[in-house]
Amino acid sequence: MNIIVCVKQVPDPQMPMASFKIDPATNKLVPTPGIPPVINGYDEQAVEAALRLKEANGGKITALSLGKELVSDVIKKPLSMGADELILLQDDAFEDGDDYVTAHALAAAIKKIGEYDLIICGRQASDFDSGVVGAGIGEILGLPVITIARDIKMTNGVIRVERVVPDGYEVVEASPPVVVTVSNELGQPRYPTLRGIMAAGRKQPTVWSAQDLGLDTTVSRMKLLKLYQPDKISQCEFIEGGSPAEAGVNLALKLREAKII
């Protein structure tokens, strides 16, 4: 089976909030030296899902990434984990694009790749957390979209997805091709092996521009009014109790009072 995985390079979300700076004049994140880029966590899980499917069914995995200032040793991580090919969409024209432009470009690249049974995306990216690009790709390509997967299997030509819902999971099946977005419930992505890293080092990514895709990048639909860091208010309350069990009961009562459970 042919699997395409969309991956995004993001600033390391583990960095403290104070180290992120926003330029209010341009409504943009100011690139801060010292914040290392990483692959979006959910996207690593998307790669992991693809690798598990490949192990079970064979096939080919193509990683696809759109972005600027992509760092070679970061963006090659899917290759070092075991993906077969890496395609980068790099063009200044993408820079000011919104999620629609991103989905549009990724969809065009997927069309250009041509043969695919499954497109896997992370459920959202840890930079802006919009969580719409996966669904956008499905919409543009006219494909079924199954979101927030914790497991993906392919049996007898049918994609079977366990989809996370608030009180458990539901099982959804679809005939390929299909878009699936993956959640952290899928489990830890594997570490790249040294052999994988060596193999990745020998592979050169394919780079496509907007022109290569025949893309109109002026299709933005979103207008960003204001980008700002919310004031962080934290309140901490210790729940007391004579025993751990009693403290547990008190916590449950508090949560019910607050209508959380």
Binding site: D73, Y191, G201
Partner: peptide
């Protein structure tokens, strides 16, 4: 350090 070295560094760092 090549891409390979940087990928090894990152992998061992994450693992550790």
């Amino acid at each position: 350090l090549s891409d390979n070295h940087l990928m090894i560094q990152r992998t061992v760092r994450d693992f550790a």
